[in-house]
Design a protein around this nucleic acid. Sequence first.
DNA 1: ATCCTCCGTGTAATCGATTCCACGAGGAGG
DNA 2: CCTCCTCGTGGAATCGATTACACGGAGGAT
Lengths: 358, 358
Amino acid sequence: MASIKDVAAEAGLSVATVSRVLNGHPSVSADARTRVLAAVEALGYRPNAVARSLRTDTTRTLGLVISDVLNPYFTELARSVEEEARALGYSVIIGNADERPDLQDHHVTTLLDRRIDGLLVSPTDGGSPRMLEAARAGTPMVFVDRWIPGVDVPVVRSDGREAVRDLVAHLYGLGHRRLAIIAGPAATTTGRERVDAFREALAAYGLDLPGAYIGQGDFQAGSGRRVTEGFLDLPEPPEVVFAADNLMALGALDAVRARGLRVPEDIALAAFDDVRWFVHTDPPVTAIAQPTGELGRAAVRALVDRIEGRPGESVTLPARLVVRRSCGERGPTRPPSPSPTRSPSPAQSPSPVRRSTS
Amino acid sequence: MASIKDVAAEAGLSVATVSRVLNGHPSVSADARTRVLAAVEALGYRPNAVARSLRTDTTRTLGLVISDVLNPYFTELARSVEEEARALGYSVIIGNADERPDLQDHHVTTLLDRRIDGLLVSPTDGGSPRMLEAARAGTPMVFVDRWIPGVDVPVVRSDGREAVRDLVAHLYGLGHRRLAIIAGPAATTTGRERVDAFREALAAYGLDLPGAYIGQGDFQAGSGRRVTEGFLDLPEPPEVVFAADNLMALGALDAVRARGLRVPEDIALAAFDDVRWFVHTDPPVTAIAQPTGELGRAAVRALVDRIEGRPGESVTLPARLVVRRSCGERGPTRPPSPSPTRSPSPAQSPSPVRRSTS
DNA sequence: ATCCTCCGTGTAATCGATTCCACGAGGAGG
DNA sequence: CCTCCTCGTGGAATCGATTACACGGAGGAT
């Protein structure tokens, strides 16, 4: 492959001049510029990004470590991240952790070895050593979706608290009283938060969330299926299962179908994360939708801000409830205003974008 | 960040010796080895992959350009590619073309600029200049899923011909005679092949595939919806719609639902590409399943073979029909043996792995 | 006419690794 | 005791770019 030296020789100039032309440096004569450009054209020259990175100590590359590529939520996130990054002149290298801390660590390590300019992470666990080290060492970093408490890194995420309240109001309105949840791993923030939000919302209606109604999942379909089977085996099974992500909801559907039961007649189902397929499942699944695209874009902007020396703020965007038929009759409508036993919570429409600086 | 020089200083040795220890070169004394290792540990040193790549002219990185990350088929492919690559000591950088030739070109260019060791492509069109140039210039390359005729590059793909025959037999057996297809872009091999296979299979049953029953899609949900609406507006709408990929099938479901019609009572549906969600759609969708994981792994092996100077062979694996309920009654069973008007085609069970060298 | 500036260009150092070659010490063989 | 290997090590070139610095010539000011 042609190098800058070849171009210099072809143009009858020095490599310095060639470099200057290529980088739009002002002090180059028009003549030199045209000769260089002609040589570049003639040789089909393309600058070696590896050499350039070594010299400038910047790669114009962002690393993105996501928890699971097979999860449509992350896939959509990855797409918007790449899109925004491209618009800002950066490339993205994706590492898929498959919800495994060891794989996450592997990818963080290789990304750091490649000297990426910044790291976007949705941590699978409470913080792998390599990642914490990178954060402390000053590698520009932003958490997206999930985060690690106590680490001084901006967080871009969505807050599902309101939407979960709306969901519980909806379920309560349909007459459901025994509500269960398939939780995500306790090591993740989203794993804990969604349970907390659910419990809080239930409490507002005077409902309890007993231990037997909290199933431990791992954000994968298999665990959703196992947990749901456990629920169905209970002496008093729940009337509703709320899956903390879309894949566990899929697993729940598997379990219900395997028993020959029906949703929502025999058991109702709702999910955190909305995906296109939920429109066409049997029945269409009521879900909490995150503004995924906006999340990805905001995360990139925050990270690039950090990289380029600007502050880089945390962002929290609201999620919203999308009612379908999987929780019982009363088709697709707006969530009902709560008529709770003792709750204060006013029926609040999805609030506008809220930002909070970290 | 600590460099090899810092390690050398810390260990009281030269950079040459440090490098030798790090690369497992034999002629290093045990004493030097332990001192280097201690220094590495003390400084938290990690070799700079950029510098190493510049010197060795190898990045141990594969580029993967896929047509659409939001398509679960490609997402699964990407996952298996990364997995196999990792097992062989390579990293993967994914570029998402979103079915757009210009984006595909962008990614091919940046990947080449980064001096990846090899390129895995599922071309969105008939061959962008940059890609053809790379192929001619001798960049190790392998086509996966789709390919470009006339370019001397191994192809790893699956052959759906048999499965399409099985599908048509199934449909014919259920009494359907007016069958339509939502095709992919004619610029892609999979776009053309699936239509051809379908037409051929229909011919074996004495059925015709009129122009009005061939809708032009682009492998995205939106086009599936539009084409299906067109079919439904026909004076004599088809009894069956066969979508050439899973996203267009999703779009078809959208269209059918928007009209208040039902599958399969009003119109039957089948799809190329099987995805997990098809089990739970309303109704479960009959689909042709590709051995996606095996495809990805085979592609990586072929590419790494090329990179490391071995031949690198083409691979073709059979797809198979998965019958569900979207084409009419007679639940999930094996595809029936054809009782065609004049077809020779024997009821062939999915054949074992077939390989053909390019 | 002389001096100073500024402009365009080239030389060479540099980034962090790998690796060829040279060199000194020590052991074996004559 | 001398010679010749072998082994471990270090010096320095190298990969392909960027960029500080030096330099020569043209043009303007005096």
